[in-house]
Design a protein around this nucleic acid. Structure first.
Lengths: 189, 189
DNA sequence: TTAATTTCTTAACCCAAGTCAACGAAAAGG
DNA sequence: CCTTTTCGTTGACTTGGGTTAAGAAATTAA
């Protein structure tokens, strides 16, 4: 499973055998059953996650209603406000499928960074990329209609539409399942 | 004007006289007239900005229509996707007021970081904070109605409502000026 | 396989925001 | 100062998404 981590890192730099060794030793990898809650509302996160296999999603519960904000699949770091701010989380992180996940903590990250200092450049770049992505995601949401957002999702991540139930896709798009049904009907014509 | 930069930095660490000296020397500060476009759609950004005084806003132009995505005021770093990705910008950055702005480039940042290495921790923290903020902003947009978003803006940044024209606030909230008018009318009752 | 449960679709009706248009208020320019 | 433009509000009408409810389709469990 480690090779997925190296695959991800090698987008940013070439890694030596020795560094690989250090990273492997530091890596804590766990399996979770579908439905496992990794972080609950109200909890303070002391772990951060990287999805190796499966799918994790984040959602708020507002007046009993689930509002999905993101899906994280293979090779994706899970952004986690509570882990950054050390304040109680306002949302949940849950496994949508049986998943294999690399887990880190502040302590382990520091330790790893001291052994492989070059990784700090990677983390800066990854953070910057995540910020840029997050901003683009937000901008799309403001700029585009629900219908356009669905079409864009179809283009950019058709895989998500297959592996994720439609009512969660609807929530992710900011609409109700019934509306997504109507949009899909409109579009097939 | 430098003191605003130090004020910002001192939220993250104590700065020595010598470091201040280095930072001051490296700092490029410019004044801009209201309406000055700092970055146009299609341009690749090679500068990044930090607002010392005044106000900068980011907006897309979609089919001739302006869609505001953010206002940046005193003591705020301006996030800039194009600066990170080195791809043509999809949006504009423009001064909404006469503004005084600290400007950096990749080269100058590197130089400064080599002189004051401690700043790299700050930049990581600031990046992390920005990511967390951006995510919270997105989540609010998905979760809340236009009316709730307006109320939240009123609470959190009443200053913006005074200094920024309403049709731009409306755009920022993702609605039309007419709708914002109606929301305001509904709320005074 | 069948039964139970979950997910998806459709229809009828409602409402908030969009559109178009008009008009008054405020700012900007001369 | 008055004129011109920009900005904010209001009204009438349209529209896309929400709500409720029912049934069909697809999963899951027995």
């Amino acid at each position: 499973m480690d090779n997925i981590v190296f695959d991800f890192l090698s987008d940013y730099l070439k890694i030596s055998e020795e560094e690989m060794e250090n990273i492997s030793q530091q890596n804590v990898i766990k399996s979770f059953k579908k439905g496992t809650v990794l972080l609950s509302e109200g909890e303070i996160a002391n772990e951060c996650y990287f999805v190796l296999k499966g799918c994790v999603y984040s959602y708020y519960v507002m007046e009993g209603e689930v509002k999905v904000t993101e899906f994280y699949t293979e090779k994706q770091p899970v952004t986690n406000v509570s882990y950054t701010t050390k304040k109680p989380s306002e949302y949940y992180l849950e496994c949508l499928e049986d998943s294999i996940i690399a887990i880190s903590t502040s302590e382990r990250s520091k330790e790893l960074l001291s052994k492989v200092p070059r990784l700090s450049d990677v983390s800066t770049i990854v953070l910057g990329d995540q910020l840029a992505n997050q901003q683009m995601k937000y901008d799309d949401f403001i700029i585009l209609s629900a219908e356009k957002r669905y079409q864009k999702l179809q283009e950019k991540s058709p895989d998500l539409l297959n592996r994720i139930p439609q009512y969660l896709i609807a929530s992710y798009l900011g609409i109700k399942p019934e509306s997504l049904s109507r949009i899909r009907k409109r579009l097939v014509k």
